[in-house]
Nucleic acid binder design. Structure first.
Lengths: 209, 209
DNA sequence: AGCCCTATGTGACTTGCCTCACAAAAACAG
DNA sequence: CTGTTTTTGTGAGGCAAGTCACATAGGGCT
């Protein structure tokens, strides 16, 4: 396959495929067809084949895909064959909940530093044993711990400020839970996790029916 | 404007516009142009005008949009001019954090029932005063409290089961925080909040650069 | 070894969304 | 009252993404 621009949606789906494949691995299923996998993921079978075609040939015609191999390959494509170091700012309810959440650690994501503005929280030890640092130490700590991804769990009004600090600290990407659109330099990657927007989507669809 | 299918992305953006407009309201800005609003939201100005055009005419040529009016209109479009009753299942770290989160209550979303499978948690009172019910009471409680949207904060392996119960209970939509693709009857609306996928997106982009 | 069956990989088509560009409209100034 | 300026509303064009359909290739059975 020649050089093609890969749709963002393809990457998102690869992540979903990888989760479905993990389920199949634990079930001991050795082989899966694009049809079967498509059902599990709620997409079109051709979509799966096309998504994979961007990166090479992974299946066997007349058979399907070997589950373990495909999972390995997808993880490699996504860059999940390494540990990713996360730094998190905002140790409120949500921030603490995220740090305790299994899904992060399961996939090779690891929190290496935690920050908060509240002087009452600075110095406390979290359940994971990680201490809470002052935001003023962000750059230094991120460098020391080699943090690669910044996680923002602050209120919306300080999110941009934290984002700037992350950018300056040399972090490569940001996962933003604050309900604001963050401005970052070109080439810098931000992913927003915005459940308010999702709820509004629900509200709209339930209203207009 | 004639009857057109409205893109899903438009609804998502309307939600983002509404947040930006709220910011402008608190700043006391009376009027905003599509250009200015577009900057705040990180989109194309024509996009904003087109999005709004699906629902009518809201601006004044040569002037722009009256912030308060537009905000009111968008909220009405999204169905945010009413209270939405939420029922939540899975009172782990994440579930509790969500219930305490200000963004829900701010926009007219209200938790009316909470559930958990863990017998140790059933009967406890949450910080909001709401008691935790057993999942077996889900249908009854949802009906009694007129829950309209179900929120799933359980581990992935029970998410589908809970979703089925929500569907049976007559809830109209589901906000799913569990990292699984949930199957629901046609016409039923599910929104997934999936930070694992977002992280994987980051990992991919940071890897391939 | 040859045939059949199954499921992939992929070119062509279709759909849907976004951007561009401009005409229509409203306010304000002279 | 007319001209100028500004910014909306929208038709047309372009691009990206998803779906369809089929040729291709591999495995298994006789």
């Amino acid at each position: 396959m020649k050089f093609m621009k890969i749709p963002a949606a393809t990457i998102t789906r690869l992540s979903i495929y990888s989760r479905a494949l993990e389920g199949l691995v634990t079930e001991g299923v050795p082989v899966v067809s694009s049809k079967k996998l498509a059902e599990l993921c709620g997409v079109n079978p051709a979509q799966i084949r096309k998504d994979l075609a961007y990166f090479g040939q992974f299946g066997v015609r007349g058979v399907g895909y070997y589950v373990k191999e495909l999972l390995f390959d997808i993880k490699k494509i996504l860059g999940l064959n390494k540990q990713w170091n996360l730094a998190i700012v905002g140790m409120g309810n949500l921030g603490c909940a995220l740090m305790a959440h299994e899904n992060f650690t399961k996939q090779g994501y690891r929190f290496v530093a935690a920050f908060d503005n509240d002087p009452m929280k600075v110095g406390l030890k979290l359940a994971t044993g990680l201490p809470v640092h002052a935001v003023s130490d962000l750059a230094a700590m991120c460098a020391e711990q080699d943090a690669e991804i910044g996680v923002i769990c602050t209120p919306a009004d300080v999110a941009q400020d934290i984002a700037n600090k992350f950018v300056d600290a040399g972090v490569k990407g940001i996962l933003n839970f604050a309900p604001t659109q963050i401005q970052v330099p070109k080439g810098f990657k931000v992913e927003n996790v915005d459940f308010t927007v999702k709820l509004d989507n629900l509200a709209y669809h339930l209203t207009s029916v």
